[in-house]
Design a protein around this nucleic acid. Structure first.
Length: 857
RNA sequence: GCGAAAGUGGCGGAAUUGGCAGACGCACCAGACUUAGGAUCUGGCGGGUAAAACCGUGGGGGUUCGAGUCCCCCCUUUCGCACCA
């Protein structure tokens, strides 16, 4: 039946022959409210207001692929429920949305459909925005950020210039994936497991060295690591992942001189080790195949050069296929010697496939007795294994006896180590590092796994890097006044080689701002992670055209601790969230903001699974939000995505489940249709009849459960169960209600509270019911219901009685009954009597309000 | 290999602090209403039994009056990291 205000507000036919026919027409109701909401653009607007407490709730912005998927719906349903809850609690809520709209898929789509990336992207945005609006998400669209538009990306360029001024961005040669058939650069994701191009499955991808721009994220490595301890509102999992990614490692750098004429005169091999205490046990040096010295060794040694090339190839393949770590260890002996600076010993220099050039110094001292990998290698090539650490421990049997090799524990004692013999490992590390530093051949140091961030992309659809190359003045930054450097349209992005922008003379040819002569523009664009590193600051002041944002405004919304609640997928635990943290620290040092961290609380929601696998287009097991909205309505789709599992866990999508939610919404609606009496307000009378008291108790229990979950653990699935239970109680009381036993003002209070409770989860239905109740004000401005602990209390409770820990009976007692009374009642119970007959009670346990346990013998 | 999370009915899941295992929902079964029911309302629903007893939270031990929850060992799944020197 079609819903209009008239019929909804009328006392509905309780004597209808077929009560089930009062069906909830979700489409009609949702369309009505959808249209109303479209007419009020400022519905969810927020402005800084020092009189109110702010709350910044943010969901990760989507890539505009064209369609929302269920993962999005779930993510935004969580954030929207929270935003609405905070609104109803009187907070000044900032809840924005935007588009992470640069990136490769737009270029692929352009090639496939012959559509310019910009057009394709903006069309997708329009579609997804419409989907979001139809789902009823309460975003302040006036703050929409679209990263591919010049009013946003000009500030990427502005930040790039600031980084450049501070030496935080630099140029370095680096390897990129290059497909000879495509004649272009590939992203890592476009290189298949077998090392071939995704478009040419028979063509091996090559590595090419190109000059690229790097952001010096490592400058903040220490702070990024240290501040992780402060992020108590983040999942431990994410903090661990970031800690591992940063990969701080304390150790010692030691120079080994080359003997005789090995290598260029006076050259040394710089080794990084965390175990300098084992250096007297070093029996070889191992170099990464790509170590710079290797070229010297192979220059006049053809066979060695061939072997090294094999090692390089092996390593590269293993890295690409992801099973580096499992490949068989191989190496070649250079037959050169290096000198251990601690004891003057000559040890052979090898080149090995298990040494990585991009960690430490690309060279290690090999101590087979005390390292698993070195041990394997030494066994294979018959290199000496020399024990220099003995175990010391609580067990005298083990102490100072020869351990099973390799012995890798680092709480032992040194032996065979000259003057250091007898020291503990920890002491030896300190003393040996100090000695190395004093003698000038080494020092204690810290290395990180974290690398500087390469941001150059040989791609079209990204932010142009604002740099110029002048024959006379070299590398020259574009002056601020010339920003933005606009990304040209009408660019041929078919894969014919090189960066697409190189083929646009109007773009490439520029004038040097220093000398006025001709200059060539940088044709690489920025990694899209730059866009998402600071977008949430832009939301605070999205249309600012003279700065990325106003500092004061940003300060209001970020406060000291950042975004109050950030919600997104765990797949962004590392890259996006490390870059964002870096960018925040950089902006703080720039004086733009005062917070040290961007996000105070982070919530990572689980994936949406169907038929046991992640929902994805490739697997063909997707569920379309549009279809769900058309069949069940937005409320049902949202409610189900919250009901089916706790939000931090994976959600197993079942079509039959959403059906159940649809029924529930109808049940709520029908209850209102049958029971709402207009003008039934007024204070709830005291001394309610028992039928009403039952409802009141359940109501207050429900408010408590839902409120507690919002405040704490966010298990919205149990919130919704609680509301369902309340509905069940109301249905059970329907006779009392229709007979007028439940006082009308109290019933009105129940109805009002019920609407407020479901408002964060099912806004369409909530608004319809709110109106049905005759409420005029905005539902978002209504106050969240409060519970009264006294009213929530049960008057009578059922106490289970156990005998020897086994449930034997239950007794009903008043809630304030004391121990004596409860035990008396328990002992008087027939079933209890029967099970303790002939036995002696040795102990009586009563847990207040919980249970009785009688221990008998 | 290292680290993290998880394992509960036919299914999704509840049990927040050591205290009635299976809330809520799906599916299923029965009843009511009905010209009709794929609507609606009500009831039932871990295994087992005539009813009880008894058994039951991946497996095995343990602590406790009492364990899904705590401790030890093991198995499985998922995720992250991984020759990181």
């Amino acid at each position: 039946m079609a819903i209009d205000e008239k019929s909804a507000n009328t006392v509905t036919n309780t004597d209808a022959a077929r009560p089930g026919d009062e069906r909830y027409d979700a489409q009609a109701v949702e369309t009505k409210w959808f249209e109303r909401w479209q007419q009020d653009a400022a519905l969810y607007a927020a402005e800084p207001d020092s009189a109110k407490k702010k709350y910044y709730v943010l969901e990760m912005l989507p890539y505009p692929s064209g369609e929302l998927h269920m993962g999005h719906v779930r993510n935004y349903s969580i954030g929207d429920a929270l935003a609405r809850y905070m609104w109803m609690n009187g907070y000044n809520v900032l809840h924005p949305m935007g588009w992470d709209s640069f990136g490769l898929p737009a270029e692929n789509a352009a090639i496939k459909n012959n559509t310019p990336p910009r057009e394709w992207t903006l069309r997708n945005i329009a579609n997804m925005k419409a989907q979001m609006k139809r789902l009823g998400f309460a975003y302040d669209w006036a703050r929409e950020v679209t990263t591919c538009l010049p009013d946003y990306y000009r500030w990427n360029q502005w930040f790039f210039l600031r980084l450049h001024e501070r030496g935080l961005v630099y140029r370095k040669k680096s390897k990129v994936n290059w497909c000879p058939k495509c004649a272009t650069v590939l992203a890592n994701e476009q290189v298949l497991g077998n090392g071939c191009c995704w478009r040419h499955e028979d063509t091996l991808v090559e590595q090419r060295e190109l000059e690229q721009w790097f952001v010096r994220t490592t400058k903040y490595a220490e702070e990024l690591l240290r501040d992780l301890d402060r992020l108590e509102g983040w999942p431990e999992k994410v903090r661990i992942m970031q800690r591992n990614w940063i990969g701080r490692s304390e150790g010692t750098l030691v120079d080994f001189k080359l003997e005789g004429n090995a290598g260029p005169a006076g050259s040394t091999i710089n080794v990084f080790t965390t175990r300098v205490d084992t250096i007297f046990g070093a029996t070889s040096i191992q170099l990464a195949p790509e170590h710079p010295l290797v070229a010297d060794f192979t220059r006049h040694n053809q066979p060695l050069g061939d072997d090294v090339r094999k090692l390089i190839e092996e390593q590269r393949k293993a890295k690409e296929s992801g099973d580096i770590g499992e490949i068989e260890k191989h190496g070649v002996n250079t037959h050169r010697l290096a000198i251990n600076p601690f004891n003057g010993e000559r040890i052979p220099i090898w080149i090995a496939n298990y040494i990585l050039m991009d960690y430490g110094t690309g060279a290690i001292m090999s101590v087979p007795a005390h390292d698993d990998r070195d041990y394997d290698f030494a066994k294979k090539y018959n290199i000496e294994i020399r024990l220099v650490i003995l175990p010391v421990g609580n067990d005298p049997e083990e102490t100072m006896t020869e351990p099973k090799l390799p012995f890798t524990a680092h709480d032992g004692m040194l032996v065979n180590s000259g003057p250091y013999s007898g020291l503990s490992c920890a002491d030896a590390i300190r003393k040996m590092a100090a000695y190395a530093e004093e003698k000038g051949f080494g020092k204690a140091t810290v290395t990180y796994r974290l690398k500087d961030w390469g941001i150059s992309r040989q791609r079209y659809w990204g932010t142009p890097i604002p740099m110029l190359y002048c024959a006379k003045d070299g590398i020259v930054p574009v002056p601020d006044k010339d920003l933005p450097v606009i990304l040209p349209g009408n660019v041929d992005i078919t894969l014919t080689g090189g960066s697409p922008l190189e083929r646009v003379p109007e773009f490439v040819n520029a004038t040097c701002p220093k000398c006025g002569g001709p200059a060539r523009r940088e044709t690489d664009t920025m990694d899209t992670f730059v866009d998402s590193s600071w977008y949430f600051y832009r939301y605070t002041d999205a249309s600012n055209d003279h700065a990325p944002f106003d500092s004061k405004t940003a300060q209001y919304w970020f406060g000291d601790c950042g975004i109050d609640q950030y919600i997104g997928g765990v797949e962004h635990a590392i890259l996006h969230l490390i870059y964002s943290r870096f960018w925040t620290k950089f902006m703080r040092d720039l004086g733009l903001i005062t917070n040290d961290e961007p996000v105070e609380r982070l919530f990572t929601q689980g994936m949406v699974i169907k038929d046991g696998r992640k929902m994805s287009k490739n697997l063909g097991n997707t569920v379309s939000p549009d279809e769900m909205v058309a069949r069940y309505g937005a409320d049902a789709a949202r409610l189900y995505s919250l009901f089916a599992a706790p939000p931090d866990r994976d959600l197993d999508w079942q079509d039959s489940g959403i059906e159940g939610i649809r029924k529930f919404l109808g049940r709520v609606y029908r209850f209102f249709v049958r029971t709402v009496r207009t003008g039934a307000g007024g204070p709830t009378p005291s001394g309610l009849p028992p039928e009403a008291r039952t409802i009141q108790r359940k109501l207050h229990q429900t408010i408590k459960r839902v409120t507690d979950d919002f405040q704490g653990r966010w298990h919205f699935n149990t919130c919704i169960s609680a509301i369902m239970e309340l509905m069940n109680v109301l249905y059970a009381s329907e006779e009392a209600i229709s007979r007028g036993i439940v006082p009308a003002p109290f019933l009105a209070e129940v109805q009002r509270s019920l609407v407020l409770l479901i408002a964060p989860f099912a806004p369409y239905l909530a608004h319809e019911l709110w109106e049905m109740l005759g409420e005029k004000g905005s539902l978002l401005k209504a106050s969240w219901p409060r519970y009264d602990a006294e009213l929530a209390k049960e008057e009578e409770i059922e106490i289970p009685v156990q005998v020897n820990g086994k449930l034997r009976s239950r007794v009903l007692v008043s809630a304030d009954a004391d121990e004596t009374t409860v035990l008396e009642r328990a002992l008087a119970d027939e079933k209890v009597k029967a099970s303790i007959a002939g036995k002696q009670i040795v102990k009586k346990i009563y847990v207040l309000g919980k249970m009785v346990n009688l221990v008998v013998k």
